[in-house]
Amino acid sequence: MELTSVFNPSSPQAWAIANLGIFMIIIAGTILAIIIVLVTFISYRFRRKPGDDEEPRQVYGNEKLEIVWTIIPFLIVAALFIFSVITMVKVNPSSAIIEDQKPDLVIIGHQWWWELHYPKSGVVSANEIHIPVGKKMLVRLESIDVIHDFWVPEVARKIDLVPGHPNYMWLEADEPGIYLGQCSEFCGIAHAHMRLRVIAHHQEEFDVWEKGQLYVPPTPRSGEAGKGSKLFKEKACMNCHSIAGTDAVATVGPNLTHLATRTTIGAGTLLNTPINLAKWLKNPKGFKPGALMPNMKLSDDEVNAIVAYLEALK
C-alpha cells in the first residue's frame, strides 16, 4: 500500500499498459545505450591530439547509410505502433459496450473531491471507491466544474473528467487491497489534496459493504449525537451536504450518510478519526487550503456534538 507504481499492476488493463511500457523501456534502453557508447567512444577515439593541426578527411555523407538509418527507426516505430493499438483495444471499453451497458459506477469530479454513485444499487459515497475483486466495472466519469483526472496507477488507465464530455473506462482489481491514487490534472488551489483510493474486496465482503451503505442510519434524538444532529440543521451544514433519512439533500459537499465508514476525510487529506474530524470542522482550510467548505466558526462544544453525530453515521 505504501508503494504505488505503474510497474506494479493489479488489473488486466494496468498489466496491458505495463507490458507496453516494458517493451518501450527495452527499445529505448537499447537505443540509448548504443548512442551513449557510440558518443563516448567517438569522443575518445576521434579527439584531436595536441599539436595535430591538419584537417581530417572531409566526408560529405553516405547515401546508403543515411537511407538505412531512416528505415530502421521506421520499423521500430511500426512495431511500437502496432503494439500500442493492441493495448488500446485491450484497455478501453468498446463503443458498443458503452452504448449497451449501464455503468456500474459513476464518478463525478468536484473541485477537490470525488462524488461516487453506484447506479445499479443506489449507493452514494465519496473519495473511496469500493469494488469487488475480479469484476470489470464499467465506470462513467463526469465533472461538474473544471477538468480533473482519475489516476490510480495500479488498477486503471488515467482518464480526464471533463465537464460536458462524459468518459468511460474499465476499473478492475485482481487482488484485494487499497490502491492509492490522485487527481492528476491541475484543477486549482487544492489540487494536491484531491486524493482518492480504490478499496478492492472479495465479493462477499463487497456485498456486506454495499448493504451497509444502503442502510439508513437512524437520526439520534438524545445525548451529544442528538444535539449534533440538531446543530447540523441549524448550522447550514445541510445546505451543502446530504444525510440519508434527514432532509439534508444537498450535493455541494460529500454525502455524509456513512461518513464513519470512510477511512479519510477531505479526499485523503486527514485520517478519519474523531480528533481529526473535530479539527476539520473547526478549520477545513487549515488542512486543505482552498477547500470549498467554509469555516463555520463552531465552538468546541458544538464541534464535539457534531462529531458525536457524524461518528454515529455508519
Binding site: 505503474v6 496491458a16 499498459i17 507496453l20 511500457g21 518501450m24 529505448a28 537505443i31 540509448l32 516505430v77 511500437l80 505502433f81 503494439f83 500500442s84 493495448t87 488500446m88 484497455v91 483526472d149 489516476w151 496507477p153 488507465r157 488515467k158 482518464i159 492528476s184 490534472e185 491541475f186
Partner: peptide, 19 residues
C-alpha cells in the same frame, strides 16, 4: 526524445501524462 516516443504511444500516456 525517447521518452517523447513513449508519450506518442497513447496507452503509455494513459499512465504517464500529468505525472
Amino acid at each position: 526524445g525517447l521518452s517523447g516516443v513513449a508519450f506518442a504511444a497513447a496507452p503509455l500516456t494513459w499512465q504517464l501524462t500529468d505525472s
